[in-house]
Amino acid sequence: MGLESYFEDFARRDWQETVPDGTVRLAIVGIGGFARNRALPAIDASDYCETTVLVTGSPDSSLEIADEYDVETVSSYDDFLEGDATDAYDAVYVATPNATHGEYAVAAADRGKHVLCEKPLDTTVQRARATIDACDDAGVTLMTAYRLQLEPSVRRTRELIEDGVIGDVVQIHAGFSNPLLEQAGPESWRLDPDLSGGGALVDLGVYPLNTIRFLLERDPIAVTATTHSTDEAFADVDEHVAFQLEFPGVVTASCTASYNSHPTSGLRVIGTEGLVSVSSPFGGVVPHDIYVECGDVGMEYGGAPGDEVLEEFDYFGYCILTGTEPEPDGEDSLRDIVAVEATYGAAASGKTVEIPSLE
């Protein structure tokens, strides 16, 4: 099969086998910057989801947002936890600070509601496992918001790897940087380790980590790492992180993340017979620029930008409406949390740390 076949209908939804009827009514728990600027517009454009409830710490000041998206019900966090307006939604999208994810996800599951939760599920392995167990016990769908897994460039890259186009994968290089203070300011909850669970690694480094695991369809077995914080604003969390993951066999992945450098991202997969390079895979609105080299043949594709957040919500709605198990489930996030804990351990000790298996 020629390289050009991978670029035909590049943005195809290979996860979609049918066109389901209806939509999933969502309660958006937490309407901070990402939810307002990215999630709500994406849901509004979605085929399979709609927003029917907003849950916020400031219901009165959120009425303008509710009007903009024609949302009739606005609840406080306490009212949500007490079961307010449960007839008005079928599922929740949890977008609160990391350490509170589990609380709201479990409350939703206990009322028979499906859950789409921002990464990570929680800030510790134990609490993440409790969320998974609560959703399993309730028989509801739990999906972690790993939107990169729905991004066409990433999906096409996995196909190229699976088909052996670049031979056996040997090395992967990936990085993601975003200047936090330019967007969120020094009062951001992301700078509070009790709420965030960490800094650049937890918020940005997890994108390369999860994407690489998705591409290889295997988990890392060991990690070495360094973290640095020089700006006073990042005194309590990691400002910069570099880590190298070891996978079974000979595959290594070198990853970086930064809270205080020029915004950029990149992904490069090198095999024994070729390579795949994806431009700006981790930015949200992805340009669909990908370069593939196989032996002496190289081919570049550049497509119109796609909104992976929209893809994420359509995928979540599709899974619920069709009874499909989402690929980025709760276990997927749990494996990342285990790897993140090992990475911080490696950075603190200066030694290679084995990553425990969940098997």
Rank of each mutant, 00 (worst) to 15 (best):
residue 3 L to V: 02
residue 21 D to L: 06
residue 23 T to A: 12
residue 33 G to D: 00
residue 37 N to G: 14
residue 40 L to P: 00
residue 41 P to S: 05
residue 47 D to L: 10
residue 52 T to D: 03
residue 57 G to W: 05
residue 62 S to H: 14
residue 75 S to Q: 04
residue 80 F to Y: 15
residue 81 L to H: 10
residue 83 G to K: 11
residue 86 T to E: 05
residue 101 H to C: 01
residue 102 G to L: 06
residue 114 H to L: 02
residue 115 V to S: 05
residue 120 P to I: 02
residue 123 T to L: 00
residue 125 V to P: 01
residue 128 A to W: 02
residue 129 R to L: 05
residue 130 A to N: 13
residue 131 T to W: 11
residue 139 G to Q: 04
residue 141 T to V: 08
residue 150 L to Q: 03
residue 155 R to N: 03
residue 155 R to Q: 14
residue 160 L to D: 03
residue 170 V to Q: 15
residue 175 G to T: 01
residue 182 E to M: 12
residue 193 P to T: 10
residue 205 G to M: 04
residue 211 T to N: 05
residue 223 V to C: 08
residue 233 A to H: 06
residue 238 D to A: 14
residue 245 L to G: 01
residue 247 F to T: 00
residue 253 A to L: 06
residue 262 H to P: 02
residue 269 V to T: 06
residue 275 L to H: 15
residue 285 V to F: 13
residue 287 P to K: 10
residue 291 Y to E: 12
residue 295 G to Y: 12
residue 300 E to G: 09
residue 300 E to M: 08
residue 305 P to K: 06
residue 308 E to M: 12
residue 314 D to Y: 01
residue 320 I to Q: 04
residue 332 D to K: 08
residue 338 V to L: 13
residue 339 A to D: 04
residue 349 S to A: 03
residue 350 G to V: 14
residue 351 K to S: 15
